[in-house]
Amino acid sequence: MDIVTLVQQLVNGLSLGSLYALIAIGYTMVYGILRLINFAHGDLIMVSAYVAVMGVGLFSWPWPVAFGLAVVLTGLLGVMLERGAYRPLRRAPRISLLISAIAASFFLENLFLVLAGGRPKPFPTPPWFAGVLKWGGVFIPRLSLLIPVVTAVLLAALFLLIQRTQVGRAMRAVAHDLETVSLMGVNVDRIISLAFLLGSLLAGAGGLLWAMKYPQVNPFMGIMPGLKAFIAAVLGGIGNLAGAVVGGLLLGLLEIMIVAFFPAWAGYRDAVAFGLLIVILLVRPTGILGESLGEEKL
């Protein structure tokens, strides 16, 4: 493989990995606080994409308005999900919570199946994003560069919030000892809502980027990226924010490199990702940055 192709593939892997990272954050934040795998998280990708499709297509809004609204509504949906499906079960056995998450996921998928129909719709990618940049012999879709940049900006903002603000500190502390945090004058319910809001906003942004990268929208489109992001979160060490980013990038690069170096295996990239999940769970269930299960490391 020549250097040009390698650069192109690296950029591809980075961009796919960024998307996984963006989505994986939501899994890991919720797991860190509630010890819940929020299976409905992936479906937020789909909701965000549909809101944008409807905004641009049905209401003819300019795309920045439609995209902005898609992200905000997805964030709020995440908060509502916690209110409706998880908060009432906070004292219930963990398995009830998990079942509720799966139900929420089915609900969202089928709701959009009813509302929008099962036929895939094209995603109205704004022309500017569709451009291709050319450097020497390297052709890189503008989107492939934009995705990592957007991701980096969003993650930097998130990390700043988590590390440097009182709510951020409260969020890290809640992941460790919910009860004692409430003794500090912190309304823990609000902190949990905020965690869902942040994770869902990122999923909303990720959903739009995903839909531009694979510009077809259908009610089940969130499942695969959702599962991949979940694998990424486990790979990095679930509950660990930095781990979600590392895991996402590694998984993205791995998938793209399989396709690039072993084209004959391209059809197995999903199988490799899920095989990886099984191997991690067997060999190192705490992931790359995780220290011990049950302990959090937000």
Partner: peptide, 14 residues
């Protein structure tokens, strides 16, 4: 019940 994953200063801030 201090927060072991936070620094001493962060515990006080919280």
């Amino acid at each position: 019940r201090i927060f072991p994953n936070l620094t001493v200063l962060e515990n006080l801030l919280l």
